[in-house]
């Protein structure tokens, strides 16, 4: 296969790139590889910048003038572990699983900048069903109803936050559940 850049030399480097959720296959020769301009997310890792600093930097830049007392972001707190938005951006770490629901939607752009995507496509996890509820069909129906309610609440939130990608995903999932999976 010829290099996609120079169309002269044999492509020796093959890789999948993700930028803003768009996946593309690349085949380039090693000479062209050394001339490539760094991709946006790539340069993040080229420099040895710790994530905390990176995240703090991004937020600080946009919020330098914001008065913390009036800043609505300052009041966002994870109900499970008590992490607040200020601490989250300062340490750059999540305090519990619920934090992802609380802070995740606020940093979607950053997630995409770091990973090139904000949606997991790898190995899926299905929790082992508990022996005593697995064969009770009645319970499963209730669970589906509950999940639909929960998803609809999330959908509403996603639309309000203009997070249309998530909204579309949630809508699909609700449809699936309504059609009996």
């Amino acid at each position: 296969m010829l290099c996609e850049r120079c169309n002269e030399r044999e492509a020796t480097i093959h890789y999948t790139e993700l930028v803003n959720g768009v996946r593309s296959e690349h085949h380039i020769c090693s000479e062209c590889a050394s001339k490539l301009m760094p991709a946006e997310y790539g340069s993040m890792f080229g420099a040895d910048m710790p994530f905390a600093k990176f995240l703090t930097g991004l937020f600080a830049a946009g919020r330098a003038d914001a008065d913390t007392a009036d800043d609505p972001m300052a009041h966002i707190v994870c109900p499970k572990c008590g992490m607040n938005f200020e601490e989250f951006t300062r340490v750059g770490k999540f305090g519990c699983a619920e934090c992802y629901n609380v802070f995740g939607p606020l940093i979607d752009d950053n997630i995409r900048r770091i990973h090139g995507s904000n949606i997991h496509t790898g190995k899926k996890y299905a929790e082992a069903p508990l022996a005593d509820t697995a064969d009770e069909t009645g319970e499963e129906e209730i669970n589906a109803e509950e999940e639909i309610d929960l998803l609809q609440a999330k959908l509403k939130e996603a639309v309000e936050l203009e997070n249309y990608e998530d909204a579309a995903m949630l809508r699909d999932r609700i449809r699936e559940l309504r059609n009996g999976n």
Partner: peptide, 8 residues
Amino acid sequence: QTTLGLTE
């Protein structure tokens, strides 16, 4: 370095 968006 990246862990999200691509499969294992």
